[in-house]
Simulated assay, not measured.
Amino acid sequence: MKKKFGNLFIIPTPIGNINDITYRAIKTLKKIDYIASENYKNTLKLLNKFNIKKSIISFHQHNEIKNTKKIIKKIKKKKNIALVSDAGTPTINDPGYFLVKECYIKKIKVIPLPGACSIISALSASGIPSNKFCFEGFLPSKKIKRCKILKKLKYETRTLIFFESPHRIKNSLKNILKIFGKNRKITIAREITKFWESIKHNTIYNLFNKYKNNLLICKGEIVLVIEGHKIKKKKISKKIKKTLNFLKSELSLKKTAILTSKIHKINKNILYKYLIKKQNHDTN
C-alpha cells in the first residue's frame, strides 16, 4: 500500500545531561525532514552536538495553533516531522497537545519515542509509592489560588507531583505544610541529571525548615513529589463491639452494621467485614 502522508515523531531530548539522548532519537532526527521546536537555541545546540542539519520550525505556546496548520500541511505532503520541546518529553506541560490531536483528526500517524522526563525520574527516586500518581503541573503563583488547589488535593490518596519554580518554592512549601500537615513525606528533586542535581527526601516539616533557613540552594527546575493521603481505619472499640453484639441477636448482620455505623459514626463496611469475620471464626 502506497504511503499517504508523512509521520509526526515525538522525540524527548535531554533535561540536563546531553548523554541522555537515545540512539533512536539521534537516528530519527537525522532521517526526518523538519523539526518543530519549542526553543530554537536549545535545539540547534543539540543538533550541532551530533552533527545534524535540519530546518527548524518555531513551535511554542504563542504560535502552537497557527504553526500546527503549517506542520499538518507539510506532513500531508509526505514530509516527516519531529516534535521536540525545550527539554524532556514533548507535550508534558509543554506545547504539542493541539498538534497531536489534529494529527489524529487528519489520520496522520503519531510515533512517540521514549526518553528523558523529569517527572518520572523524580518519582522513581522519591521513595514514595509510584504505583498510583497524578501530575498537577505548576502550582498557581497567587497564594489564594495555590491554597485552593492544595485544599482540593489534601485527601487525594495517590502520590502527587508538581513542578515548582525557585522563587516560589519557600511559599509553596509553607502552604503545603499548613494544609497537608507536617508528617507527610515529600521529595524535592532539583536540577535532575545535571552536575548539581539534588534530591532531598523527608517530612514536609523538616524540608520546609531547611529551605526556610537557606540550607538548600533554591535554584533550577524543581519537581515536588508528595505522599498521598493515608486513610486511617477507625478502630472498633469495646463500646462499638457491645452495640454490635446487642443488635445482631435481633437483626441481620447487614442491618446491624448499618445501625451501629449511624450510632457510632463509623464506616458500615468496616463493621460488616468485622461481623462476617467474627461469624466465620465462631463457626469454625
Rank of each mutant, 00 (worst) to 15 (best):
I18L: 15
N19M: 10
I21M: 06
I21G: 04
Y23I: 11
A25D: 00
T28K: 08
K30N: 15
K30M: 08
K30S: 11
K31Q: 15
K31W: 05
D33Y: 10
D33R: 05
Y34R: 06
I35E: 01
I35T: 00
A36H: 03
S37Y: 05
S37V: 03
E38A: 01
Y40K: 15
K41L: 14
T43R: 01
L44A: 07
K45R: 13
K45F: 12
K45E: 15
L46H: 02
L47M: 14
L47N: 07
N48D: 15
K49S: 12
F50C: 05
K53P: 06
K53Q: 14
K54Q: 05
K54D: 00
S55R: 10
H60C: 08
N63K: 11
N63E: 00
E64C: 00
K66N: 11
N67G: 04
K69I: 15
K70T: 13
K70C: 07
K70L: 14
I72A: 06
K78S: 13
K78N: 14
I81F: 00
A82C: 09
V84Q: 02
V84K: 00
S85L: 05
D86H: 05
D86W: 01
A87T: 01
G88E: 03
G88T: 04
T89A: 01
I92D: 05
N93H: 10
Y97F: 15
V100Q: 04
V100R: 08
E102M: 12
E102I: 13
E102S: 12
C103A: 09
Y104E: 12
Y104K: 15
Y104A: 08
K106H: 11
K106N: 15
K107R: 12
V110E: 09
I111H: 11
P112C: 03
L113V: 13
P114E: 09
G115V: 02
A116N: 05
L123S: 02
S124N: 12
S124Q: 14
A125K: 14
G127C: 12
I128A: 02
I128T: 01
S130V: 02
N131A: 09
